[in-house]
Simulated assay, not measured.
Amino acid sequence: MDSVIEYLPLLLQGLRTTLLLAVSTAVLGLALGMLLALAKLSRHGWLRAPVFAITNFLRGIPEFLVLLVIYFGGTQLLGALLPGAGLEMGPFAAGLTALTLVFGAYASETFRAAFLSVPKGQIEAGRAYGFNAWQCFRHIQLPQIWRVAIPGLGNLWQGSVKDTALVSIVGLDDLMRKSSQAAQSTREPFTFYLVASLMFLVITVVSMWIIAALERRASRGMTEMR
């Protein structure tokens, strides 16, 4: 117990990095997922087909491989674009890019299904009342899309939090890496990996509570609209 208290500031530093990476991934992944979903629903085959191919590719390979390709490939790309500059893809940037791409690929399917769940008659009625495309999206589609998508997006968020542990492989000082450092220094791997597990569990429990609250609020909002 004394060793845990001694290394607690180190673990909290790692936890902060983990949360920062997870939240940044979720924000960027949601935006990317929405754009990809709109592209998948496009009438233009030249836009729709490549997006389906890319997202299926990202969903079909392990996140770990995506991370390694981004980390090492990004460094090579920077070296090719700016030779002699000595630029490298940092662990946080590589992790954020890789996890955002994966999150966005999965979120695009969640959003696409949510878009398709909105009856076309409601959109046609909105147009009949003089709503433009943005107003239809904002006042008719978005509230219903949000309600349908929350459970799936909640699962993606929790998976993304756990996937942040992969980024420690490329040198990010996240919770997993800090736990490993403490375990090696004290030779108490069970203790510190258990503490890391409990910290991830706390994040999961808090996330489940927030997601459930969002679901209740969205459902209440739809009831009020009716």
Rank of each mutant, 00 (worst) to 15 (best):
S3I: 12
S3G: 03
V4K: 11
L8F: 12
L8M: 09
P9A: 07
L10R: 15
Q13Y: 11
G14K: 10
T17I: 15
T17C: 04
T18S: 11
L19Y: 09
L19M: 15
L21T: 00
L21W: 01
L21C: 00
S24K: 14
T25E: 02
L28V: 10
G29Y: 05
A31Y: 10
M34A: 14
M34N: 09
M34D: 00
L35W: 11
L36W: 06
L36Q: 08
A37F: 11
L38S: 09
L41M: 12
S42H: 01
S42C: 05
S42A: 08
R43F: 05
G45N: 01
W46H: 13
L47D: 00
L47E: 00
R48M: 00
F52I: 07
F57D: 09
I61H: 05
P62Q: 08
E63T: 15
F64H: 07
V66E: 03
L67I: 06
L68P: 01
V69N: 10
Y71D: 09
A80E: 12
L81C: 07
L81Y: 03
L82G: 00
P83C: 01
G84L: 00
L87D: 01
E88L: 12
M89P: 05
G90M: 10
A93I: 05
A93Q: 14
A94V: 06
G95T: 04
L96Y: 06
L96F: 12
L99C: 08
L99Q: 13
T100M: 07
T100R: 04
V102A: 06
V102N: 12
A107W: 02
S108L: 03
E109P: 02
T110H: 09
R112G: 07
S117T: 08
S117F: 01
P119N: 06
K120F: 10
Q122I: 06
E124N: 14
A125I: 01
G126N: 03
G126L: 08
G130I: 08
G130M: 05
F131D: 03
A133W: 12
W134Q: 08
Q135Y: 00
F137R: 08
F137L: 13
H139A: 15
I140K: 02
I140T: 05
Q141W: 01
P143F: 03
Q144G: 09
I145T: 08
I145K: 09
W146S: 14
W146L: 15
R147F: 03
R147S: 11
A149N: 04
P151E: 14
L153G: 06
G154R: 03
L156S: 05
W157P: 02
W157L: 15
W157A: 11
Q158I: 15
S160P: 11
K162Q: 13
K162D: 08
D163G: 10
T164Y: 14
V170C: 10
G171A: 02
G171R: 02
G171C: 04
L172C: 03
D173C: 03
D174N: 09
L175K: 07
L175E: 02
M176I: 06
K178L: 15
K178R: 15
Q181H: 15
S185Y: 14
R187D: 10
E188R: 15
P189H: 03
P189V: 04
T191P: 01
Y193D: 10
V195I: 13
A196S: 04
A196V: 05
A196C: 05
M199I: 15
M199Q: 04
F200K: 14
L201R: 12
T204Q: 13
T204E: 13
V206S: 12
V206G: 12
V206K: 10
W209E: 15
A212V: 09
R217S: 13
R220D: 08
M225D: 13
